[in-house]
Design a protein around this nucleic acid. Structure first.
Lengths: 359, 359
DNA sequence: CTGAAAGCGCTTACAG
DNA sequence: CTGAAAGCGCTTACAG
């Protein structure tokens, strides 16, 4: 009844060396004679041996790992959800002896973020995960982060940096999907305004591009009345700004019947629509999910949002980084495109915040 | 820098007993004096000790577990996807020494399924996971499956049985969501036919109820021209039947402009719509996702499907069952309502079949 | 360059 | 009722 998975011992016996030597080969630690290297490699091949990750993890428990995480805590609700993803990962990895150190900045600001990263590195983290506030960080990151610290990006990418992998949505397609949803809900007489906070993020720009391009390509009968960048460096500023700009737009465009908010500030726009007495007449479309968004979907002020499951992204990223830390970091890491959900009133019963089933 | 999670040794020292005694308390194995029981319980409490699952798993490796799985392999594509979920679980659990034995039946038939279950039990499985073909199985299951074999249901439930937990969608809400999607795509002049294979499944019935109830409640301007049960005990029968019935419906109802298929046979209905020259005019809505459904969404014959991610359900169920097998099976297991996705042409770029990120 | 040994935190016979 | 010891499959000093 014994499960016949070969172990490191089997490989050692077959190749006529000690377990320690097999281990050296497994980790390319060198200091192995050509002859033994060959014997071990062949034995591994013949037995199709795969190291047992459980045993590896238990053993790794002796030397603890520390993973640092930092993000811009500007839109509170969005990042609060991410904290739940981080906590799931913390619980998951605790038995492996992994410590998670979380830091954050209060603005979308490059220098703040670099300081936060420096801070984490000073605490001797073995790995680093963060959402870069600007694409232009690439060079700086490679300078600030030592070679032996693995880092990965979540939600936003920094193309050109040494980042090990990236997890995030396909923002261009998200924008296209948003256009389609608006068309489904408003039919052929859609006069839409795009409110675009976080214009510094390349993801935001791509959503707008995807939206515009979808309208042209299909084509969809949607008029874009205006595209407004909403100032949003700090939290307070962004809330106030989008609320006020929404009111201004409503005043200036009497034909307006739909608003697309390119990110998670959707609910503040919806509040302005409601407060101005336009609930139902002006339909709001946007992103993410909070309890308030749930109510807004229920009441019909918001028709649909696209949910990128940020907590899951962080959870997955943290677990992946750990895999590479204890395993062979020479392995190629692959990027992951997040699965996004369409949320409408009728899909509310299925939603899981965080979305980690196995605790 | 040592991580300060307490271990079983810490508990033993603090309560002045051996590790073995602590272990006895942890697993309610009895044979512990009142005095020691109290001491250990208190020590666990004070240190807030939690057993390390990794160590537990590695140790459990000594005694192998076998989990049996059986399902009705009638709609090939649907169950082929599930095989990929089972394989993910197999890879995930292999290092833990878990063996997965898979069996299936060729029809939606109670007796076939009971035979399959008997067969797995004869192979000494420690746990059992399956999709019951009939709600009325409850009593039989409790008789056929020994008390010491944990079992759980996926996709379809058997209320009233001793099943340990259930993972599946909220079928009533799924039906309601389908009604909404049809309304979004066809507007206020919708003449719909519901094609309902697998009428023996309670889930199917609930989808129809949810659909009808949503139309009344909202209300949505949708006329249901007819509700057809499609014979579907075997695979070949169901494919042919739904194709033929679709053609008949098209012939009999000239005003027909939408079809709702209550489950995964959607693509065969869509083929009939296409072959009869009604692509685009008659819009198809249904369930699940296969490569062919991808093409049908792309070409606009199918407007939307609701995807219950069956592979993920099985994956999660298998992993959960293992957790209970090695852990304390006295713990209460909780049921899981599957997160369902709305699939439309524009969400195709995000879809993941199987959907297991971490391999 | 190589191997014997200790250890990660549990579980499981076994002996008392 | 209780505890010492072996073992799960790895990794990591340490000695040679």
């Amino acid at each position: 009844m014994k499960n016949q998975q070969p172990t490191i011992k089997d490989v050692a016996i077959r190749s006529g060396v000690s377990i320690a030597t097999v281990d050296r080969v497994l980790h390319n630690r060198g200091r192995v004679s050509q002859k033994n290297l060959k014997a071990v490699t062949e034995a591994i091949e013949q037995l199709s041996y795969r190291p047992n990750q459980i045993a590896r993890a238990l053993s790794a428990r002796k030397s603890n790992f520390k993973i640092g995480i930092t993000y811009p805590k500007v839109e509170n609700e969005f990042w609060a959800e991410i904290d739940s993803g981080i906590n799931s990962a913390r619980n998951q990895l605790r038995p492996f002896g992994v410590e998670l150190v979380v830091d954050h900045t209060n603005r979308y600001n490059r220098n703040d973020q670099l300081k936060s990263i420096d801070n984490l590195i000073k605490q001797n983290v073995n790995g680093l995960i963060f959402t870069p506030v600007s694409d232009s960080l690439a060079d700086m990151l490679d300078q600030h982060i030592p070679e032996n610290v693995l880092f990965a990006t979540v939600i936003e990418d920094t193309v050109g940096s040494r980042r090990f992998f990236h997890i995030g949505p396909d923002d261009f397609q998200i924008g296209a999907l948003a256009a389609k949803l608006i068309h489904l809900y408003t039919g052929d007489n859609s006069k839409v305004i795009i409110l675009s906070p976080n214009a510094g993020f390349s993801g935001t720009q791509q959503r707008v591009s995807g939206f515009v391009s979808k309208i042209k390509q299909e084509p969809l009968d949607i008029d874009i009345l205006q595209i407004c960048n909403v100032p949003s460096e700090t939290e307070k500023e962004s809330y106030q700004a989008i609320y006020q700009i929404t009111l201004d737009c409503i005043r200036n465009h009497s034909s307006l019947n739909a608003i697309y908010v390119t990110n998670g500030l959707t609910q503040w726009c919806a509040d302005a629509v409601k407060d101005s007495g336009n609930a139902g007449r002006i339909k709001v479309f946007g992103h993410e999910f909070t309890s308030e968004i749930g109510e807004l979907l229920e009441s019909g002020i918001v028709c649909a949002t696209i949910y990128q499951k940020p907590a899951q992204q962080f959870y997955t990223a943290i677990c992946m980084l750990y895999e590479f830390l204890i395993g062979d970091r020479k392995l190629q890491a692959s990027n992951i495109i997040t699965e996004c959900s369409i949320l409408i009133k009728e899909s509310l019963p299925f939603i899981k915040i965080g979305g980690m089933d196995l605790q």
